[in-house]
Write a protein that binds this DNA or RNA. Structure first.
Lengths: 193, 193
DNA sequence: GTTAGCATGTAAGGAGTTACATGATTTT
DNA sequence: AAAATCATGTAACTCCTTACATGCTAAC
């Protein structure tokens, strides 16, 4: 999944926002969070932290050395600049916000944004997925291919998954708007691209 | 989505196995096929084709120049060596076969393998996903975190998606084994959190 | 005639993985 | 005492994306 560079940064800022942490733990949390794909390696986390340090987005915590036998570890926390950057990134609306990986991160930290932003991101994500469905359906209609059993099943399962995702988003959008309505309301027919 | 290098190669071999094609069309088909994520760019397809040419896995088709006004395009087809390589790759069992991207490709071309291989890949994939669920459930149980509304929802949705995927695989496995049984058999109850 | 889509490519650069390296601490 | 896990890092390499570059052809 591409475009992790900014993604890692955002995720780290978000997590550190919930309390200081050292690299090893950040990695575990990160993997738990976006771990539905591949795991994040040290080789990409530590350099990213170094870079963020250089950019003054985070800083090392000089914790009170109360517990004597502390293991060698570096605890980080966000700086004011880091907080600004975090909120700036979270306020972004546009493709960057609703691509696969990025979306999950934004969503994870939705509590840190306004409802207005949340709605725009959710809706952006939904129409992104809708576009995919339309594209596939269109292209599928054009080229009526000889149907391989497995190819067809994969296609079907893919479409179904994305449709489920769209319904999920619709529910979330309704919840944002109407307080707590749980019913999946009929969406306004998306103005096809 | 890492490890595309080999993935693209396998996908191209598979598609060309269904008939000669030129790069532009390969790209379209590829995107339709694994296009639930990001799109494949020319910058990675064409170099990959060049490389496969060098390795004699594919060759340019010298088509009969019947239709005079043919547009500048290069049509490829698999060589014997390419066919061998394709079957070799499809017969691989092991992690490489059931990682996210790779799995989809294998599955797409399942018709080109034995049932034995198919079963092993499907089962490998399933236990891979099961592992993920277990890991998340375990780690979730250990660290009872203060529950952020959105973080919790993301977690829930993620687990649900993977569980659906597991059921899908179970159905496929049953279908492979028992001829045509469609019933979703009860899975061993997942150790709930 | 001009826009949109077909068709192929290259160069630079970013992002992350793998493998390597090291050592402390806790558990068995 | 050994094994597992905590903890941090670096270097080389792979792979892919972005942006650039070019030109044909069909449709409007």
């Amino acid at each position: 999944m591409a475009r992790r560079g900014e993604t890692i940064e955002l995720a780290v800022l978000g997590l550190l926002h919930e309390g200081p942490m050292h690299g090893y733990e950040l990695r575990k949390r990160l993997n738990l969070m976006l771990g539905w794909g591949r795991l994040l390696s040290y080789g990409s986390l530590y350099p990213a932290l170094k870079k963020m340090l250089r950019n003054n987005l985070i800083e090392e915590v000089t914790s009170a050395p109360s517990t004597a036998s502390r293991r060698q570890r570096i605890t980080y926390q966000v700086t004011d600049k880091g907080t600004d950057e975090f909120h700036r990134l979270m306020s972004e609306v546009g493709p960057a916000a609703w691509e696969d990986d990025n979306f999950d991160i934004r969503f994870r930290f939705f509590s840190s944004t306004d409802m207005e932003i949340r709605l725009r991101v959710l809706e952006g994500r939904r129409s992104r997925l809708q576009e995919r469905l339309d594209r596939v359906q269109r292209e599928l209609a054009m080229t009526q291919r000889e149907v391989d059993r497995y190819a067809a099943e994969l296609q079907r399962h893919g479409v179904e998954s994305v449709e489920r995702e769209v319904r999920w988003l619709s529910d979330l959008i309704n919840a944002e708007r109407g307080g707590e309505r749980t019913t999946t309301e009929e969406q306004p027919p998306a103005p096809a691209t």
